[in-house]
Design a protein around this nucleic acid. Sequence first.
RNA 1: GCGAGAGUGGCGGAACGGUAGACGCAGUCGGCUCAAAAUCGACCGCCUUCGGGCAUGGGGGUUCGAAUCCCCCCUCUCGCACCA
Length: 884
Amino acid sequence: MNESSVTVAAPVPRQEPAAADGPRYDFNSAEPRWQRAWAERGCFRVEDVPTDGKPKYYVLEMFPYPSGKIHMGHVRNYTLGDVVARYKRAKGHSVLHPMGWDAFGLPAENAARERGVHPAKWTYENIANMRTELKRMGLSLDWEREFATCQPEYYRHQQKLFLDFLTAGLVERKESWVNWDPVDGTVLANEQVIDGRGWRSGALVEKKQLSQWFFSITKYAPDLLSALEGLDRWPERVRLMQSNWIGRSEGARMHFDLAASEAGIDKVEVYTTRPDTLYGMSFLAIAPEHPLAASVAARDPKAEAFVAECRSKGTSEAVIETGEKHGYDTGLRVKHPFIEGATYPIWIANFVLMEYGTGAIFGCPGHDQRDLDFSRKYGLDVVPVVLPPDGDPASFAIANDAYVGPGTIYNSDFLNGLDVDAAKRAAIAALVERKMGEGVVNWRLRDWGVSRQRYWGCPIPVIHCDSCGVVAVPDDQLPVTLPEDVTFDRPGNPLDHHPTWKHVNCPKCHKPARRETDTFDTFVDSSWYFARYCSPGSDLPLVRAAVDHWMPVDQYIGGIEHAILHLLYSRFFTRAMKATGHIAVDEPFAGLFTQGMVNHESYKAADGTWLYPEEIEKRLDGTAVQRGTELPVTVGRVEAMSKSKRNTIDPGAIIARYGADTARWFILSDNPPDRDMEWTESGAAGAFRFTQRVFRLAEALDSVPTGPQPAEFGQAARTLRRATHRCIASVSEALDGFAFNVAVARLYELANAIGDAERIGNNDDGLGWARREAVEMLARLTSPMIPHLAEEVYARLHPGSADLVADLPWPDADPALLIAESVTIAVQVMGKLRGTIEVPPNAPADTVIAAAEAEINVARALEGKRVVKRVHVPNRIVNFVIAG
RNA sequence: GCGAGAGUGGCGGAACGGUAGACGCAGUCGGCUCAAAAUCGACCGCCUUCGGGCAUGGGGGUUCGAAUCCCCCCUCUCGCACCA
């Protein structure tokens, strides 16, 4: 997880912000100091089962893959989560906010193969480095809950869960077609097959049948789909993507009898959503992997060649993009279910998928575009059976487009005259009557294959015994740990090559047997970690009292790239854990927020090589030159930070230069958090200026005496206090709505208002008190975003106080101060703005209208006109409608 | 192809159906400086005969009033994609 982009170290050191006159906020000493203060106070620690009676709030960001360094995507992700965590905590919640490591995975094995470093060493060193970097961000995390999924203390429980699922019938071992890389000797995910070749080896990928472990996610398909409706704090598009992925469709499962049986096979099973078009049938097509295709291929060399070709080219982009359809006529024929004596050819076709439905279709070219393309290519009949509403049965014909719209059935015997839906029902009824089929619901979702031929993953805790079959590793022998002495000097799975590891005795019959050498897909590791955080030290996978208290996660935050797989697997896993008694909830994540990416301009030198941002210098006219050489540089697109384009910004360098608060402030201020943002140098510098300005506003109060709240405030003080309390209200509202960029804008407004008050300089009428109040509120309201500076400012305002802002409750706005002393009302004539008037709040309508009519511009616009309607919206607007 | 989302100044973006452009970035002018940096102040959608007019992708509609609601169209982004 979270490994989409990798940051590399900046090669050229950047210059420090120029040292300026006067004292400055020294983030270098302040940030570590406050981080220590929070840690020593244990501000962010919570109990597994709290007894403080506070409402719980569980904030979680997708845990990082320990690639080596944190990148800006992490900074954005964890800053967003930290704002939520700190805000909810201040609002009186007991907040669980943990962090850990998604630590198994292929990059560690690649490092082992490429550099000879053991995956464990590589992983743990990366974790140590990234932990240090994350701690510099000042996140309000309970670090005592940290774990890595590669620790036996974690994955032993995963093995236990697997065995519980096995007992509960939620896991099975079955044969399946997989992408097999013959050079690397491993199964590849579909995403790892590029143009028909393995992404690492470049070898042609083969389709191969392997025995694999599967989680029975399809058992939950209906529930996983219907429960999406209740996830009302998930983005609509994620719910939609999951819904499409699960892919429910209604139709009929039916069989066609072969005219003559083939190698003992006498019928073909078909799934269709269009049983109403059965009379339009002109062929039957089966997938190349279909058993019937295999038996034809066994006796027919041409068929065998065709199947082999499909197998090798099936996944290539060329075939998929052009949609070119290929087929082979087997010579076999099937009988029509309703038409006595009619038979149709059976083709093997490349566009029929073995994975979906039954791997066989009946072809109705009149009303399915693919079937039409296929029929035109091979000269098969095209018989229309659905007449469009305005169609003429005598002349309606199918040209190049199949007709898939609504209409009336014709050319179809007993179905004639029915509409499409009625005909579907009638056709299914007829199939049922003849015992040839039934109405079914079909799902696109497949069971989740979790076997990987990898070393750096969680061992699957089973033993294969020749006498007893598959035997679960007994609980008292868990965990099955990875052997450390492995080599990566040849392709394939090091566990399989290990001289002794897999050789064990069967736990049942004690005869020699073999350990399973496959490990789990790393998505398994991340499918329950959120629940483990509730009781990370327990001897049980989950402690019911802890998960019952904390789960579900109230706010989950991460990238959209996990919209389907990780989230769907986690939803399944939670249900499976419920079925096995480990947890009580169905849904793991009550709220989900998907953040946008962090992008940056890219730069290219004249010779075509990419340049790091540190290597270029911007000119005033927007062009850029190479630092030092002054050679011209092409400024490229703003795109996702990537190592290859060298448009990365190292968070460590930013924090060293500006401090964590600046990085956090800029990343929050730039735009709404669900959209992609552009990291810019000027934006970061602007954020840095703000932090310094806040400090100066606090510093300016050193000479302003403290004292009790005055009974009376002058005009300027009242204005400032209104700004302060309006800010409390509006920042709270913005934070509640994830509008962090708006919260930032409101805080700039408050800072501007304090600056205005500062320049007035007269403290006699309570302005000094009002300024202290405003600066304190500025600190407290910014504290979820820039927590270190908030502490620094608060401490300066309260010398000698031991209070931490992190422990203070969220301030409440004084309702009396949210009411303006006067309101500006817009005056329109026929909907066009003609002027504004100042009136007391909630002034009576006739007073306001009279004042509006008196306004000079309005009066001019109304002169000589007849007003037919006066619209008055209190405290908002007056609109005069005139005749004519 | 199917589905979803989005189009507002030079840029990122604000805006319960009620003064469009908050706030920031960039820019212009000025104060302070020998100068620069930092900082502070002012300006900053387009046109204008200085009355005002035009402006939220385009065109219609609803409304006293539309960036916002409805219909049609255009463009862009993302997701799924031979799913029978």
